[in-house]
Design a binder for these strands. Structure first.
Lengths: 352, 352
DNA sequence: TTGTATGCGTTATCAT
DNA sequence: ATGATAACGCATACAA
């Protein structure tokens, strides 16, 4: 692996130059392969570097070239598996392309988010990845001031300011509702996520496109656990109850199911639940939950790739839409679509 | 929040100085509060900074002070809630102390881990946080070459090379087994984690200390999902079966429970399971699972705090041990310990 | 093929 | 209370 890092005071390019008996320019060029250097000189320099355990200073280089090969990743919360998984994809291709990633969280708060980005800029990141929490035009104006390349994931920034990588949740919702209807459900409720996000709009569109006339079962949520709790109370209060429900946010789904199980077990027995995101807990719920799995890893990989392209001056697609996958835990929802992989069992992918 | 970043070329300290009609020295001192500046001058400078959307360059500062105020965090896998939660604690105090955090993953592979650290060093991080995956003396030698301050979490590095923040899993295991015995269990099985880690040893010690004679129900695991699957088959093959089992790793617990539910439902009905870590999925399992919750957030906070102290030249404790919390989902395990908060219901903390 | 010299943005040591 | 300026480590334009 690495040869010793030296005692403590690190070698500089000047030290190396002296030891090798050449100028600092030569050393620099050897390092970067930026002009031809004689065989023997090169060897001397390399040896000097090795002996001194020289590592180029990121500071000096960053100051000069104004880049540190670093990406900024702003997650609402890394504790949310969605972001953790996207990050994994991001980090994988970032490393492939010799970038490191600084991670920050915004707690889904536009102000925190802006501060986080500002901080990243100050740190000299070459580009930023985030899932815009803001929904207003004013915020879009703030976003537009960001002086480095940006790619958003999960959502499209207001006014479509940046290239984005998103899941096709419209199609996914459409498909889910279609399956439920094919299975005989008529009264299909919808629990919406935080309003204003492109994701929420997409999912709502998918729902409405698949069902008509629109049932009067729509709950306006907030993308948080407690929103799901309230949705559970809400849905339990109907006299002719919906027989199915689609929940367009993972945290809300968790609050919803937990509340139903604890306070309204009979409701849970009689309602078919479809949730967003293929998370471990959904596997353990009884009666079973079907889920819409997002291609989180791909989202991360694509976003990081696009950002790296952008940084290196290439142009990229303004929008990349990746397909979701419906995972029926209830076999009867497996229904045969043309071109459908036709998953049947509780075949969710074990973690790790 | 931030006023415009300018069109693209960012403001420097020089720009600010000109605009405020002062020298760069004065600006610098205003920023850092490093010498007294007249009321009005300060105000002018502040305003100039605001107008220009000035943000001090990390490069310039880093070059001068030889620090970028950046921490490196090496997680086995951010997709594992344990690491995500620890990271959250880390990031919180890092930000308080004006550090940013670069995140990398090692997949629990010592070689990857070493490469990741090396990479972080080259990036000029001021210190490194990680949960050492290595167990050998050779690796300890490699670890010792790391030229920046290090604090480990979760585990103690071989030969105790670095200050560490760990959970008191020995006590937690002891307590868990004690509760099971108090509840009448005699045949309590133990599913161990990856051998060689200090954590595994601690948990094993806690188990053995609480039970005698030692039952012949011990499974050597690997800290992965598939290890749990195999443990499930293993435990189901006994003729007089253990009536309880403690599983000392979260991923293994998941594989274990999932396999039991799918292939050996009757075994699941008749065995009391205690798992590591308070994760959402454990809430949804029936019959219920009791868990040992680690103070993940605190672990992260403490570790980051210690690292920051170390970096600023202070000395820190070599080892900090934080208490775990037993969360009984089965009320009968709530048992009255003196000084016990006496949790009873399924009161796990909802996420977010 | 190689060396000299300059500047990147900050901070800190001198002066004033 | 404030200003001028050297130095940090590196990359590069220009000279040789």
């Amino acid at each position: 692996m690495q040869e010793g890092w030296g005692v403590c005071l690190v070698a500089t390019i000047k030290t190396v130059a002296e030891r090798a008996g050449v100028s600092t320019a030569t050393v620099s060029h050897v390092i970067n392969g930026t002009r031809t250097v004689s065989e023997v000189t090169a060897r001397n320099v390399m040896q000097a570097m090795a002996e001194l355990g020289y590592v180029p200073s990121a500071f000096g280089r960053g100051l000069r070239k104004n880049t540190l090969k670093t990406l900024g990743f702003v997650a609402a919360d890394m504790t949310n598996p969605y972001f953790a998984q996207v990050f994994r994809g991001v980090e994988t291709v970032a490393l492939e392309r010799h970038y490191n990633v600084i991670v920050t969280h915004s707690d889904e708060d536009p102000d925190k988010e802006l501060r986080a980005i500002s901080n990243l800029i100050a740190r000299g990141v070459d580009g930023v990845l985030f899932a815009p929490a803001a929904t207003t035009a004013e915020m879009a104006a703030e976003y537009r001031k960001i002086p480095v390349p940006v790619v958003t994931f999960d959502r499209i920034a207001p006014e479509g300011t940046f290239p984005a990588v998103v899941a096709d949740s419209r199609a996914a919702m459409f498909d889910a509702v279609r399956r439920l209807r094919a299975h005989g459900h008529q009264a299909i409720a919808f629990v919406s996520s935080k309003p204003g996000l492109s994701t929420s709009a997409d999912r709502w569109e998918g729902y409405t496109a698949a069902i008509h006339p629109l049932p009067p079962f729509v709950f306006q949520g907030n993308a948080r656990y407690d929103g799901g709790e309230r949705a559970a109370h809400w849905i339990s209060s109907f006299k002719p109850r919906p027989t199915a429900v689609v929940i367009s946010n993972n945290l809300m789904a968790m609050g919803f199911v937990a509340t139903l199980l604890e306070h309204f077990p009979t409701v849970m027995q009689t309602i078919e639940v479809v949730a967003m995101d293929d998370e471990p807990w959904t596997t353990f719920v009884r009666p079973p939950l079907s889920v819409i799995a997002q291609p989180t890893d791909q989202i991360g990989r694509q976003a990081a790739g696009m950002l790296a392209d952008l940084i290196s001056g290439q142009t990229v697609d303004q929008l990349k839409i990746l397909p979701c996958r419906f995972i029926p835990r209830n076999p009867e929802l497996a229904g045969g679509h043309p071109g459908d992989p036709g998953q049947t069992s509780a075949g969710n992918t074990p973690p790790q």
